[in-house]
Amino acid sequence: MIVVRSCVAALLALALSACNSNTTADAPAAAPAAVPARTPATPPTAATGKKRLLFFGNSLTAGYGVEPDQAFPGLIAEKIDSLNLKYEVINAGLSGETTAGGRSRVGWVLRQPVDVFVLELGGNDGLRGLPLTATRSNLLAIIDTVRRRSPGAQIVLAGMQIPPNLGVAYAADFKALYQEIAKERDLVLIPFLLEGVGGERRLNQPDGIHPTPAGHRIVARTVWTVLQPLI
């Protein structure tokens, strides 16, 4: 398991609310389940030699309130293009998604194999106080589906944290859940996706919960630190 250094950001309530489907911000209809972050001129084939990097998550991945190329998956795609790496980047983020929802649609998203799969889900579960046993079961099912459909894929798990509104023990167990799953399934782990962004007013939109383009740039750097050695 590879772990990227993380510090717990202050005011997690604002940051983690970005994924809450009950907020006004997540109310608009979401984009299709899988949308290329940067649409290639031709689909990736054996002839083009391009591999697939897929981001699978909720409104944070979908980039609510910013242009597609300003969200962190789009910024990763731009970085990959600048380095002439042979990857197609696909943004499969869906605002308001829970782990149960992700479990139900991951098979459809993986109709074509992927080489790197970034899993960013669970924040909505925690904010709703859903049983951690269910969140764990859903995340494991998603991971198992990826490995069944794309046996050679590298899987990156983006950890999330929640405020102690539902109890300190629940918040601590929620945070530890990602570490446990990453260790159990030998995944690459980002302990906290929103490191340096969560709760920072200047890095979030007027709603106080979705990152601005500047916030997404910080998230992209956090993610790139993990992805660079993989690709």
Results as ranks from 00 to 15, higher is better:
residue 26 D to Q: 13
residue 120 E to S: 13
residue 218 I to G: 04
residue 185 R to K: 15
residue 125 D to F: 06
residue 221 R to G: 12
residue 74 G to Y: 05
residue 229 P to G: 10
residue 32 P to I: 12
residue 164 P to W: 00
residue 72 F to G: 06
residue 74 G to Q: 10
residue 39 T to L: 14
residue 117 F to G: 10
residue 126 G to I: 10
residue 195 E to L: 06
residue 156 V to M: 09
residue 144 D to S: 15
residue 179 Q to T: 14
residue 110 L to M: 11
residue 45 T to W: 06
residue 88 E to S: 13
residue 130 L to Q: 12
residue 1 M to C: 10
residue 131 P to F: 09
residue 192 F to W: 06
residue 35 V to L: 12
residue 53 L to W: 03
residue 38 R to N: 11
residue 57 G to F: 09
residue 95 S to A: 15
residue 127 L to K: 02
residue 153 A to V: 05
residue 133 T to F: 00
residue 66 V to H: 10
residue 97 E to A: 14
residue 131 P to E: 12
residue 211 P to T: 05
residue 88 E to I: 08
residue 181 I to R: 01
residue 83 L to P: 03
residue 200 E to H: 09
residue 134 A to I: 10
residue 85 L to V: 02
residue 192 F to D: 00
residue 177 L to A: 03
residue 171 A to H: 03
residue 195 E to Y: 02
residue 93 G to M: 11
residue 225 T to R: 15
residue 97 E to I: 00
residue 231 I to G: 03
residue 206 P to V: 07
residue 89 V to G: 07
residue 153 A to Y: 07
residue 67 E to S: 15
residue 181 I to T: 10
residue 80 I to D: 01
residue 118 V to G: 04
residue 214 A to D: 15
residue 231 I to P: 00
residue 97 E to G: 02
residue 119 L to H: 10
residue 160 M to V: 13
residue 168 V to D: 09
residue 150 S to R: 07
residue 109 V to A: 15
residue 83 L to T: 02
residue 71 A to C: 14
residue 103 R to S: 14
residue 193 L to G: 02
residue 213 P to R: 02
residue 29 A to N: 11
residue 113 P to H: 10
residue 4 V to I: 14
residue 229 P to C: 07
residue 147 R to M: 06
residue 216 H to S: 06
residue 96 G to W: 08
residue 67 E to M: 13
residue 165 N to A: 08
residue 43 P to F: 09
residue 89 V to L: 07
residue 155 I to L: 13
residue 139 L to H: 05
residue 231 I to H: 01
residue 65 G to A: 13
residue 203 L to C: 05
residue 90 I to N: 04
residue 7 C to Y: 12
residue 97 E to D: 15
residue 175 K to N: 13
residue 31 A to Q: 13
residue 36 P to Q: 07
residue 72 F to E: 04
residue 197 V to Q: 04
residue 54 L to G: 06
residue 111 R to T: 13
residue 88 E to V: 14
residue 80 I to Q: 02
residue 63 G to E: 05
residue 206 P to A: 06
residue 199 G to L: 08
residue 26 D to M: 14
residue 18 A to P: 00
residue 201 R to F: 04
residue 142 I to C: 12
residue 116 V to F: 11
residue 82 S to L: 08
residue 28 P to F: 11
residue 19 C to M: 13
residue 33 A to C: 09
residue 93 G to Q: 11
residue 144 D to P: 04
residue 157 L to D: 03
residue 224 W to E: 00
residue 112 Q to F: 08
residue 192 F to E: 07
residue 198 G to V: 04
residue 41 A to N: 09
residue 162 I to F: 01
residue 129 G to Q: 09
